[in-house]
Design a protein around this nucleic acid. Sequence first.
RNA 1: GGUACCAUAGCUCAGUAGGUAGAGCAACGGACUGAAAAUCCGUGUGUCCUUGGUUCGAUUCCGAGUGGUACCA
Length: 306
Amino acid sequence: MENKKDTCAVQSRLVVVTGPTAIGKTRVAIEIAKAFHTEIISCDSRQMYREMHIGTAVPSAEELATVPHHFIGNLSIHDYYNVSMFEQECLQLLDNLFQTYQTVIMTGGSGLYIDALCNGIDDFPTVDTEIRETVTGWFETEGIEYLRRQLKMLDPEHYARVDLRNYKRIMKAIEVCLQTGKPYSSFLTSQQRLRPFEIVKIALNRPREELVANIHRRTDAMMEAGLLGEAESLYPYRKLNALNTVGYKELFAYMDGLHDLDTAVELIRRNTRRYAKRQLTWFARDTAMQWFHPDHIDAMVETLHS
RNA sequence: GGUACCAUAGCUCAGUAGGUAGAGCAACGGACUGAAAAUCCGUGUGUCCUUGGUUCGAUUCCGAGUGGUACCA
């Protein structure tokens, strides 16, 4: 298999279509996939959960019928999942798809997932649930200062570099130290993995005003489509990580009586806007991105043909 | 129509005993190595309604205008 690829004149190619939420990735990806008669891999960390439809804006049944999609609704909110698992499963899937297609499309807005697939992510053992719960317990009962002291002892090198106000980063490092008995920083190589296929990255964007209008329109559409009902049915599981998601957490707060429904919707809009900004910041850093207006699909296809 | 009050950041407002102004929210910018739609950090963006006057100097004091709110007709 490897040899065949090496001698093959036309190399396999992955086309990544990304951009901020509500920019129109789904439509663009489908059009490009149709142009190349191929399939789509989703790299959206929330569309993977089959219990979450409306709030994650998964492609419609018609859209899914048009082009085969992967990694949509493939997980339950009760499953543990992480970027590394995505990287491995995705590489395996690509290996299969490239036997049929020269070009495969990947679309979604989870920047870390995209980077993990394109550049690789350092390998360290998965942390046992008990250790994760222990460290979480430390944070909840002892506070962040205690976590800092632990990290300083376990991995002074990482302590010097990590954002000491970001408890998640500190907890992750401590967990790995405890799991392996080695400093977290000893697993970090900063080395980019080479992939046996070409990668083309397309990022979608449009004037901020239009993006914001899209976000507001889509939020209203989600509410009309029954987002509140979906959130109500998931309320018992609101503590799960999968449900720490824009569109759901604000409605859970409404159900808890923290604010009224109009406020909840306004917060969904605001938090979606902020999420879109964080995505744009992430993608802007990637110099390999080729930026397009989502309406210029012909230009994208042309670029991919040349 | 009359009287009173108000006019300062995108919004709600504070303030300057006269020396060109600051809070909350919104907004904007950034970081990111297995929970990432997560998590964390940074930043006031302003004809102080307009226009005369007093003054070395007016967003601030006085007059007029415009707009708004309330009450009286």
